[in-house]
C-alpha cells in the first residue's frame, strides 16, 4: 500500500515571506544534530563505509559479492556451461572454456571473469547455475575501491570455499 502525503500549498504568510525566521529554524535543526553527534557519538546514523559496514540481515546476505565453489580436490565446480553468462542481464560475466584431459569432467573455466562495475547484483547467475558452482554469499559488498581493476574479479580471485563446503550438489560432480 502506497501512502499518499498531501502537500499543503497555501500561500506563505508574512513571517515566512520575511524568510529570516525560517532560516533560523533551519540552523536550529543543524545545531541539534551537531550537539547530538558531539555528546552522544553512538547515535550517529552515518556509517564510515567502507571502513565500517553494517551486519546484513536476512536475504540481503544472499546477494553479495560472487564466489566460485571448489570441489574437494580443489578444482572449480564450474564446468563453463555459460548459463550464468546467458542469464546475466548486465553482460558482466566473461567465460572461456578449457578442456581437462585427465579428469572425468572434461570442461572447466579457463577464464571466468566477473566485472563488478557492470554487475547489478540481481543473482540471476546463481539461479541459472546447474552445477551449484556460483554463489553470492560472501557477505562482501562490492564497491569502495580505488582502482577500476579491483572491480574486475578473475577466476582465482573468485574461487573460495565457505564453511560447509565442498558440497556434492550439481550434475557433473558424479564424475569428479
Amino acid at each position: 500500500m502506497i501512502e499518499i502525503k498531501k502537500v499543503n500549498n497555501r500561500p506563505l504568510n508574512l513571517l515566512e515571506r520575511i524568510y529570516v525566521w525560517e532560516i533560523f529554524k533551519g540552523f536550529l535543526v543543524t545545531a541539534r544534530h551537531f550537539f547530538v553527534n558531539l555528546f552522544c557519538p553512538g547515535k550517529i546514523i552515518t556509517i564510515q563505509y567502507p571502513e565500517i559496514t553494517r551486519p546484513l540481515e536476512h536475504a540481503a546476505k544472499r546477494r553479495t559479492r560472487h564466489r566460485l565453489k571448489m570441489r574437494a580436490n580443489g578444482t572449480p565446480k564450474c564446468v563453463a556451461c555459460f548459463l550464468c553468462a546467458t542469464a546475466c542481464p548486465a553482460f558482466c560475466i566473461h567465460i572461456e572454456a578449457g578442456e581437462f584431459t585427465s579428469s572425468q569432467v572434461e570442461k572447466y573455466p579457463a577464464v571466468f571473469d566477473v566485472d563488478l562495475s557492470r554487475c547489478v547484483m540481481c543473482g540471476m547467475c546463481v539461479e541459472a547455475c546447474p552445477e551449484d558452482a556460483i554463489a553470492m554469499d560472501t557477505e562482501v559488498i562490492p564497491g569502495g575501491v580505488l582502482k577500476r581493476e579491483d572491480m574486475y574479479l578473475t577466476r582465482n580471485k573468485l574461487l573460495q570455499n565457505m564453511p560447509g563446503d565442498p558440497s556434492i550438489k550439481g550434475a557433473a560432480n558424479r564424475l569428479a
Binding site: V79, A80, C81, L83, V105, E106, K107, P130, E131, A171, A172, R174, L175
Partner: peptide
Amino acid sequence: HPVDCPICDQA
C-alpha cells in the same frame, strides 16, 4: 543418459 548437458556441446 548422463544428463551432462552443462558440459555437452550439443546442448
